[in-house]
Nucleic acid binder design. Structure first.
Lengths: 224, 224
DNA sequence: TATTCCATACTTCCATACAAGTAAAGTCTA
DNA sequence: TAGACTTTACTTGTATGGAAGTATGGAATA
């Protein structure tokens, strides 16, 4: 008998509420600064306050919500500092990963097919699918480097960045992103570690120009 | 009246319980795999189960506890994968930070004085102080690079590593750590970015040799 | 002896009630 | 009218009871 259950038990109610709110926040459906009421949400989905409250605690732990005692809970604004910090970390880590991949020369079919999906999603104007594929592209690189756990850690840091991307992808030129991805993949395929590092750093520095523009366009969504 | 309170209101009971347990876990007082009971802890400190439960949820969100529904809550074992992942991230990020510091040539007095503290703590055999100063040394480098937020992000990832260090610092040779720190600081002072990167990478790869030894010595404290 | 079944004592999870604190509206007073 | 005070309607925080699920030990059965 396996010691771990095969059938995954349905997640707890509190976890489900968390996941639901998480998606709505990341996708920008719940805008930064919006008010979250325990009682209101509990009533709307026919639950008591307790599981909703526990979902709030999880969200606050991820930096996506801010619980002000006896005052209210609010969707956290996008922290410019947190975004910049996560971006710097991503650049440092992914450039190391890129060097590892360029040196090891593993199969890169997964990254190749994501590039094709991005081309298609761009033409179709499917922003959500484009962003999802963008993520999978970078994840595939971490996988090719033999470091799946690293991507999981990056994902936790990225949550603030993701909200920004859902805003900026509607505005900014997606073909430029595709071109940058292609440059990365070409360098990796050629096994050129220096070129790969340069390409991935250039790509991830893109956000440094997008962030100020977004912050200027929606000042009330951001905090220092 | 300022809109933000100057005097920090005492944190909620649940938060205090969390902080208390957090310290005990990091310091190894509560060993990996140990059982945590809502009722037991609640009774022992004269509270109801609810705040304790919420503390557990926070700990689980940080990867320090594992809540098994209807079965019990346990101190999470040290995940070898998580430690290795955090280590790789640290190496990538701190080598970028080291280059930034070497190029900018800021004041490095803070790092210098931490080195002196480590010398003293080593001679006195004060392990806790040594580890704390070790952390401040690396934090000072992030600060010198003008990236305090990056260190905060790294701290969250480091929680698994910290538990390991509280175990290994009792075993391993602390003078070696000091020598490595000195090599880093010397390179930074000289403004030699290449040497600084090499020194910090060498230092952070130290753990790669310590981890297997620790895992072999306490196999029940670790999980894949 | 080995195996199956079942009662019991746990655990976490959810619902409900109440307590404590905040903010904003309304009211009184000068 | 201006300002201080009070009331009132919120908010999150905590306590407690019960529901649902799990593991364990013992009894019945082969």
């Amino acid at each position: 008998m396996p010691e771990h259950t095969i059938l995954a038990r349905p997640a707890s109610t509190a976890q489900q509420v968390h996941d639901w709110l998480y998606q709505r926040i990341i996708r920008g459906d719940l805008p930064p600064g919006a008010r979250l009421s325990e009682t209101e949400i509990a009533d709307s989905i026919g639950l008591s306050r307790q599981p909703v409250r526990e979902a709030f605690i999880r969200l606050a732990g991820e930096g996506l919500a801010e619980i002000k005692p006896q005052r209210g809970t609010y969707i956290g604004k996008i922290s410019v500092r947190a975004v910049l910090s996560a971006r710097l970390i991503r650049e440092a880590v992914e450039s190391d990963l890129a060097r590892m991949v360029a040196d090891a020369r593993p199969d890169l079919g997964a990254m190749q097919s994501e590039l094709a999906i991005q081309d298609q999603a761009d033409k179709a104007g499917d922003v959500a699918e484009f962003i999802a594929s963008d993520d999978r592209f970078h994840q595939a690189m971490a996988l090719a480097a033999g470091q799946p756990a690293v991507w999981q850690d990056l994902e936790r840091l990225k949550s603030q960045m993701n909200r920004l991307r859902h805003m900026s992808m509607r505005v900014f030129d997606r073909s430029r992103t595709i071109a940058q991805h292609r440059a990365v993949l070409d360098a990796l395929t050629a096994g050129d570690a220096d070129a790969a590092e340069t390409a991935i750093r250039t790509h991830l520095r893109q956000m440094l120009t997008e962030l100020p523009e977004m912050a200027a366009a929606h000042p009330d969504y951001f905090t220092d």
